[in-house]
């Protein structure tokens, strides 16, 4: 392909757009170091590391972080199993209702989060289920399935069915085929999907407000600080940490699937 140069105004618009996407997040990083603790004054009058120590000493933040991590891990595990099973079925065979199955998987994320949230809440109230760790996991796993599914289904389509047939013809059981043939082929896609599911769950707030009751995950903790601020600079520090924590799995998923036709993360 011939090397083309873009007109200057297009470069300016595209570059400006990217800056627009990134500057606000970088600004939060800067605010985490401000010495001023009452308002959002710009520019920061001075820089300090004081708030990191304050945030470190807050037990409520640690509790929220711990709950978020546990929820994200369990929800990711459930989503990995369900998403992979569903992808294996949809990618490898044609059957009546195949379209409906893929629609059902996508639906929890296609409809606004508040619908999923209030729907789960209605169901809990009708069935008299009290809020607990597991009600949060139930909601998170449901919308995380689609992320794993999207990654796995793309990879399953590329894994040749002949490989599996050959393995079975050579006398392997399903368990052996799964361990020695299928899993090595889809491992990176699953890892990428799992990382994205983890990031999605770790950050989720809309559904969680309806399924958590009195428990606070880290996003819920942040939401409460935003609505009723107590110690603003500490919120800034937590905000910065949350962004950095979610960047890691995203970059990991990108590196794992780079160079394949379906790079992970393009559908949230």
């Amino acid at each position: 392909m011939r090397f083309e140069r873009a007109p200057w105004w297009l470069k300016a618009l595209a570059g400006g757009g990217l800056l627009f996407l990134h500057l606000p997040i970088l600004l939060v990083f800067l605010y985490a170091f401000t010495t001023e603790d009452r308002s959002y004054v710009w520019p920061p009058p001075g820089l300090t590391l004081h708030w990191f120590a304050r945030a470190w000493a807050r037990p409520d933040i640690w509790e929220a972080l711990w709950l978020s991590l546990r929820v994200a891990l369990v929800a990711t595990a459930v989503a990995l199993v369900l998403g992979t099973l569903c992808a294996a079925a949809v990618a490898r065979s044609r059957f009546f209702g195949r379209e409906a199955v893929s629609l059902l998987v996508v639906l929890p994320i296609a409809l606004p989060g508040i619908i999923t949230g209030i729907a789960l809440r209605s169901a809990f109230s009708l069935a008299d289920i009290p809020f607990s760790f597991w009600t949060i996991v139930l909601g998170h796993a449901t919308f995380c399935v689609v992320v794993v599914y999207n990654n796995a289904v793309a990879r399953f389509r590329r894994v040749s069915g002949n490989l599996i047939e050959a393995s079975m013809d050579l006398g392997a059981t399903y368990g052996q085929t799964l361990r020695h043939v299928i899993l090595p082929n889809i491992a990176t896609a699953l890892l990428a999907g799992g990382m994205l599911a983890f990031a999605l769950s770790f950050d989720e707030v809309i559904v969680t407000t309806f399924t958590a009751g009195q428990q606070a995950t880290l996003p819920i903790w942040m939401l409460e600080e935003l609505v009723r601020p107590r110690e603003r600079p500490v919120t800034n520090v937590v905000a910065m940490v949350v962004v950095l924590v979610t960047f890691l799995p995203i970059l990991g998923a990108y590196h794992l699937t780079r160079g394949t036709d379906t790079v992970a993360g393009s559908g949230k």
Partner: peptide, 30 residues
């Protein structure tokens, strides 16, 4: 650069993004 430039803001925390704009748009903000 463009791929990650779109992907990182897409996946970074929704609340933090909203919060960032609270800082930016506040009366004494940037």
């Amino acid at each position: 650069v463009f791929y990650l430039g779109v992907m990182l803001p897409l996946w970074s925390s929704y609340l933090v993004k909203v919060y960032a704009w609270k800082l930016i748009l506040a009366k004494e903000g940037i």
